[in-house]
Design a protein around this nucleic acid. Structure first.
Length: 390
RNA sequence: GGUCCCAUCGUCUAGGGGUUAGGACGCGGGCCUCUCAAGCCUGAAACGCGGGUUCAAUUCCCGCUGGGACCGCCA
């Protein structure tokens, strides 16, 4: 039913309340003679399929009831209605994305239109609904391409005009298989809980399989204006959450400060179950952050980390970069020696020592501050180093 | 196994008979008189293979390989 949602945004397919519409459709199909009764039981069909699999042949209904005369119909036995697929020729889909896709009719199955209990099946309902709702354009995943061939035949048999179709490549997980729950495909609300902005999510996913030149960032209204089936790609796309993170960041940085604070408080609550309103740590971090800079919640969380007792578990990467490479250790030792000689240990005097060191080693402040930061906090991110030390 | 589809950096992609094959994420290096999910500069990184067609193929055609989707009285 996924494709229906994207088209009409409602769950109407095979809805019991629409029974009349479907009944009329089935009735019409019977009258047109494009369906036939099949008295096969499930067991019988299973046995047939099993044989086909063992014989490595095509698994499909062998049309055994297709040409049986009415006199063969058993009495009081349940039956299904199957579609009488043309045996000759081909069914061609002129797809707006996939191009011309042709199926040999003989390969198409006489699929079940109505179950033994009389209820109509998916492919039949889809057509009934689309006709009823006067759908003109269907956009859905390529996993429905084969269904389209079946549906096209229903339209044809009932003398109806089919909509135009656009089948989009699927999104895949890192393992190459289509993105699903086992990859972590979740409800959009889960993404939101994880701190992703709706507009960022939209921006990210629309770019999977769709492009507009070299453009990467699209505001939602821009997207609505620019989106075009011609920009859609036939091939699959693999999710890459790092890019989502980057896009999300762009939107966060761009947002109003009040918004950022609001998200931060909310995220701290969702994430850490902390009511950040009036939290002293929050205030401290605020103070340590230049006012013009964004304070999205993840930064806050990162910064909170530098106050954490287990901060000695130095992250390998910054440790290597700032301590082991480029003489960081040497500078640290120098600083240690001079700090030991300090009479008053306050922000001003610390700063003075740093400046002295910068002259001594003829390096930028950055080359001093980062090694100290890493040594002190175990991370490459923390509040101002002078005050942090105190 | 049958049917159908796909194939440009690790990933998302632009491009399309003649290009230094472009952008983005990520990664490396550097800048910013301290870091930041900010910014700037810079580096490494791709047309799967084999045949055609052509003066010229990454681009067109065929084959191969690889990947995927679909094969329910599910939707």
């Amino acid at each position: 039913m996924k494709d229906r949602k994207s088209v009409v945004n409602t769950d109407l397919t095979c809805n019991p309340e629409r029974g009349d519409i479907y009944r009329a459709f089935v009735q019409k199909a019977v009258e047109q003679g494009c369906v036939y009764r099949c008295y096969c039981t499930k067991d019988e069909l299973d046995a047939m399929r099993k044989l086909q699999v063992e014989g490595k042949s095509r698994t499909a209904y062998d049309r055994r009831w297709r040409d049986r005369p009415e006199s063969d119909w058993p009495e009081d036995q349940p039956y299904t209605l199957r579609f009488k697929m043309p045996l000759e020729g081909e069914t061609v889909i002129e797809d707006r994305v996939q191009g011309r896709v042709a199926f040999t009719n003989a390969d198409l199955e006489d699929f079940i239109v109505a179950r033994a209990d009389g209820s109509p099946t998916y492919n039949f309902c889809v057509v009934a609904d689309d006709v009823n709702m006067k759908i003109t354009q269907v956009i859905r995943g390529v996993d429905h391409l084969a269904n389209t061939a079946l549906q096209l035949n229903i339209y044809k048999a009932l003398g109806l005009t089919p909509p135009s179709f656009a089948h989009v490549g699927l999104i895949h997980g890192p393992d190459g298989a289509k993105y699903s729950k086992r990859h972590g495909a979740v409800d959009v609300l889960e993404w939101q809980k994880a701190g992703y902005l709706p507009e960022a999510l939209r921006n990210y996913f629309v770019r999977l399989g769709w492009s507009h030149g070299d453009d990467e960032l699209f505001a939602t209204d821009e997207l609505i204006r620019l989106f075009d089936i011609d920009g859609l790609s036939k091939s699959k796309a693999v999710v890459n959450l790092e890019k989502l993170d980057w896009i999300n960041q762009q939107y966060i940085v761009d947002a109003a400060p009040e918004k950022q604070t609001e998200w931060t408080v909310k995220a701290l609550k969702d994430y850490e179950n902390i009511d950040a309103t009036g939290d002293p740590r929050l205030e401290e971090i605020c103070r340590a952050t230049p006012p013009h800079e964004p304070k999205p919640f993840v930064i806050w969380l990162k910064r909170l980390k530098c106050f954490s007792p287990d901060r000695k578990n130095t992250i390998p990467k910054p440790r290597k970069k700032h301590l082991l490479k480029g003489g960081g250790i040497e500078r640290l030792k120098w600083l240690e020696k001079h700090f030991a000689e300090l009479e008053t240990f306050d922000e001003k005097s610390i700063e003075a020592v740093f400046e002295q060191a910068a002259n001594e080693f003829e390096v930028k402040l950055l080359k001093l501050a980062q090694p100290v930061r890493v040594a002190l906090t175990g991370t490459a991110v923390s509040p101002g180093i002078y005050e942090h030390w105190l």
